[in-house]
Design a protein around this nucleic acid. Structure first.
Lengths: 145, 145
DNA sequence: ATAATCTTAATCCAGTAAGTCAAGATTGTC
DNA sequence: GACAATCTTGACTTACTGGATTAAGATTAT
């Protein structure tokens, strides 16, 4: 039960773009350097995000990537589902019953419930929230100098 | 983000043993048949559970496995942690900072929070709860005949 | 034109999941 | 004591996935 590096990298890239929202296109090279991610791998992740409509990409010189929506319109559930696929997928959930032994459906209900909990937790956090938390943190650090 | 078959099978085995709690040792063959699990694989899972102290195993004829504690003293978090390892493990969490880029710690807090949510959810469910749910279900089914 | 940049597909390696198999150890029962 | 049932262990297999690299090609600003 873990987050793969695809999800990790993808979220960090989105967070990076959120912090630069309104500042024009950001190049993948720049994101990669700032976030410590292999560029070639990041490019693949960015393609997934673009296909899903979360970012727009501009080609050519001075091209780059930018969020397709404002940071407060993108939540972590949406992003992670694109990057990692659904939580607790497929054969564990209540639909695929019948062939399975009886006790199975009791557990399926547990999983479904857990999934809902996770999704609610992530859906409540937007990219803008992350930016805000960073600003808060910065503020605190300043205070302590 | 999924539950592997090891976790799935292990929980089903524990659930099975919970339903037979107090009825003496249950053989792995019997559990495997009832739950639709390959015996040889189930045996490996049972060894993990025994090493972790969740079940006791008796060898020889009329041997088998039984819960080491009453069903209401074993919760799903404990069982799943044994079977699957910790949730959102290792390098994503706030301890391994310093080398990582700055934004990373903001996300680490998100993961830590999510982990707590998941753990609280699973810790609240015991094997006895599962048995109770099954009894409730049986009752309802009877009603509808 | 050309250089910057993204796109795509092919490829690679390591690790893990899922399961099989066979030989050995333990113990109750006759 | 011998036997049979049962669990134990570890080696092994097969297939898949995660993570990443590379190289060739497409697009477009200047």
């Amino acid at each position: 039960m873990h987050i793969s590096s695809k999800g990790d990298y993808g979220l960090r890239a989105l967070f990076d773009l959120a912090q630069n929202y309104g500042a024009g296109p950001i190049q993948s090279e720049e994101i990669a350097t700032r976030q410590g991610i292999p560029v070639n791998y990041l490019n693949q992740v960015l393609i997934s995000l673009r296909k899903a409509g979360l970012i727009n990409s501009l080609r050519g010189a001075q091209g780059g990537h930018l969020l397709a929506r404002a940071p407060d319109q993108i939540n972590l559930l949406e992003a992670l589902t694109i990057l990692e696929g659904p939580f607790l997928p497929g054969d564990l959930l209540p639909e695929s019953a019948a062939t399975k032994p009886e006790d199975w459906s009791i557990l399926a209900t547990v999983w479904l419930n857990l999934r809902k909990t996770i999704e609610a937790n992530l859906e409540a956090i937007t990219l803008e929230d992350l930016c805000q938390r960073k600003r808060d943190k910065r503020g605190n650090v300043m205070y302590h100098i």
